[in-house]
Nucleic acid binder design. Structure first.
Length: 580
RNA sequence: CGGGGUGUAGCGCAGUUUGGCAGCGCGCUGCGUUCGGGACGCAGAGGUCGUGGGUUCAAAUCCCGCCACCCCGACCA
């Protein structure tokens, strides 16, 4: 196929759009791939739509190859289907809701667990039917509080979602592994650099949920990666190495200190060091007790105190991820007021058992360790407060904010913090939806078997943005061949003879099955054509210009920046070879 | 929801302080020159200055209200 730029619906921009911040957004708009319609809502122009379809095709091929079958659901869904799974209310404000003419409630699907589950329930009823995996590539709608970064995080976006249905956990594990392998293949073919990171902590659920992240500075997800082993995890799920437990009996007795006006760790450390207790103290020697509140599903809010070393912050997201489905939040002054024995700024764990407040510590607060912590009295702290002697937590929970350089729990290597774009997520859902919709199969013994499900997503339109983030330079995009809007971009830098030669070359390449973007614009200078070619980012560019007098054309490699003169007669062979 | 910022031609912006003809660059149309790195000349088209009200002889500019959008955070995958 040959696209002629003289008639292609395309207008490139010389300047960055004012509302764009990240490279993919700037370049996709400047190069005429997408245009904004409303916040988080974009139109795809011919070049952009071609790239989007190529990504889609690769995703589809790999899904089919792993044995999943393609279906297509409506985006417009009646309320009752979402009521059954309680998500009409649970999904909250992110759900686009609308009414039909009869005033009945509808929604625009943000994801399709319900429809998939209902479809399978309606069609299949025997154990002989399973396992089965279904997928669709479809437009999803989420009314994000703050869409951002162009098509990286939109309110309307294209997603491939698939679901596996199995009779038992082993089956689910197999389906999960098959999807995982298919995703690896998919992202390799797309030319995306990616990491598979654990999305739940090892303590909670093994490998039941993993994210595929494309590392880039504009990414919204923070993850850590070990510099020594292959451990990688979302910061919400990461586990870090902790010091060994200590013998509690080696510490002196706890001792109450006068520490007026030391409500913060910094002021406390300063005061401690002025007391000349025979050693220097740092924030890491203090135990900070943060008052939170938690609420189990269906229960009331109750106070929860979390203990972390004083030089560390509590990472609320990390905490929430591990406590789910119990909610957690920072305690309000009103919550604190109901426990008069908790003295703000001077809270210590010594009395928590007595007053019935749940206490969790970060694993860094190892058994037998001694701390300077609050004495539960205004202006007083206590030193040599020992875990296992002076207090005993109700449990451990990874609560501290991870730092660059923290040690890997597996191998002791250094963990580096990096950012990435979530381009895929695989998740062993289990029986949540099967329970809600009573999805069962009749077993060989005449008893029903509750089906177990896996859920797997790839952000298709987001992958286009991620590709742009990873493949560009100062002057434009540089697409991997597998997704480029064309195989070859021919620049006609001259008049009649050059145009004729370029047309002939384009026809030759076209006949070989390559797609050609032919810049045959008559009234545009060569300089503009070169700039546009760089901006658009087709991997191979052929310049038919002044060299034609000597019988050569110039073949450029956009990524490598190389330029080679090639005889016109062999140009098609050369280009075809580069494109294979 | 909290904080910061912006709305003027298709795009990028100046003009608002100190009220007085609606401007610049890119893009677009026509003619001519140029023709391998975002060429040049001449002539053009294109605007409800976000919106509603107010002050004034006169409002893009001052006052009051509203709306929209962008960025950071909260939230979310």
């Amino acid at each position: 196929m040959t696209l002629r730029m003289s008639s292609l619906f395309l207008r490139t921009l010389r300047e960055d759009p004012a509302d764009a911040e990240v490279p993919s957004h700037k370049l996709l708009v400047r190069a005429g791939y997408v245009r904004r319609v409303a916040p988080g809502i974009y139109s795809w122009l011919p070049l952009g739509y071609t790239v989007l379809r190529k990504v889609e095709r690769i995703v589809r091929e790999e899904m089919v190859r792993m044995g999943a079958q393609e279906v297509h659901f409506p985006a417009l869904i009646p309320r009752e289907i979402y009521e059954t799974s309680h998500r009409w209310t649970e999904y909250g404000q992110n759900l686009f809701r609308l009414k039909d003419r009869k005033d009945a409630d509808y929604l625009l699907g943000p994801t399709h667990e319900e429809l998939f589950t209902l479809l399978v329930k309606g069609e299949y009823s025997s154990y002989k039917d399973y396992p089965v995996s279904l997928f669709q590539i479809q437009t999803k709608y989420r009314d994000e509080a703050r869409p951002r970064a162009g098509i990286l995080r939109g309110r309307e976006f294209v997603m491939k979602d698939s679901y596996s249905f199995d009779l038992d956990d082993e089956g689910l594990a197999k389906s999960y592994a098959a999807h995982r392998a298919a995703y690896q293949k998919t992202f390799e073919r797309l030319g995306l650099d990616y990491r598979i990171v654990s999305a739940v902590s090892g303590a909670m659920g093994g490998s039941a949920s993993e994210e595929f992240l494309a590392p880039t500075d504009s990414g919204e997800d923070t993850f850590v990666q070990c510099d020594n082993c292959d451990y990688a995890a979302n910061t919400e799920a990461v586990e870090i190495a902790v010091p060994p437990a200590v013998d509690a009996s080696q510490h002196p007795d706890a001792q109450v200190l006068d520490t007026p006006d030391t409500p913060t760790i910094a002021t406390l450390v300063e005061r401690l060091n002025s007391l000349r207790l025979g050693r220097e103290f740092s924030g890491a020697d203090t135990l900070k007790n943060v008052v939170m509140k938690s609420r189990a599903p269906g229960a009331d809010w109750e106070l929860l105190v979390v203990g972390v070393p004083g030089d560390r912050e509590v990472d609320l997201k990390r905490l929430a991820g591990q406590l789910e489905p119990t909610e957690v939040a920072q305690a309000e002054p009103a919550d604190l007021a109901r426990q008069p024995r908790l003295v703000k700024g001077y809270i210590g764990p010594q009395i928590l058992k007595e007053i019935g407040v749940r206490y969790l510590v970060d694993p860094l607060v190892v058994p037998g360790s001694a701390w300077v912590t609050g004495a539960n009295e205004q202006d007083k702290h206590a030193a040599f407060v020992v875990r296992g002697r002076d207090f005993e937590p109700d449990g451990e929970i990874g609560a501290v904010e991870i730092r660059d350089g923290d040690r890997c729990a597996r191998c002791g290597g250094h963990l580096a913090i990096a950012r990435g774009i979530e381009i895929g997520h695989i998740f062993q859902l289990g029986r949540k939806y099967a329970d809600a919709f009573e999805l069962d199969a009749l077993g060989p013994d005449g008893k029903s078997i509750r089906i177990t499900m896996g859920s797997y997503g790839i952000g298709v339109s987001r992958a286009v943005a991620a590709l742009a983030e990873q493949h560009h330079d100062e002057v434009g995009l540089i697409w991997p061949r597998s997704v480029a809007p064309a195989d070859v971009h021919i620049v006609v830098a001259g008049k009649e003879e050059q145009l004729a030669a370029a047309e002939a070359l384009a026809a030759d390449l076209d006949a070989r099955g390559l797609s050609v973007l032919l810049d045959d614009r008559a009234a545009v200078s060569a300089g503009v054509k070169f700039k546009d070619a760089e901006l658009i980012g087709v991997p191979t560019v052929v310049v038919v210009g002044r060299g034609l007098a000597d019988g050569v054309v110039e073949v450029r490699d956009r990524a490598a920046g190389t330029r080679d003169d090639v005889r016109l007669e062999t140009a098609a062979d050369e280009v075809a070879a580069r494109c294979s």
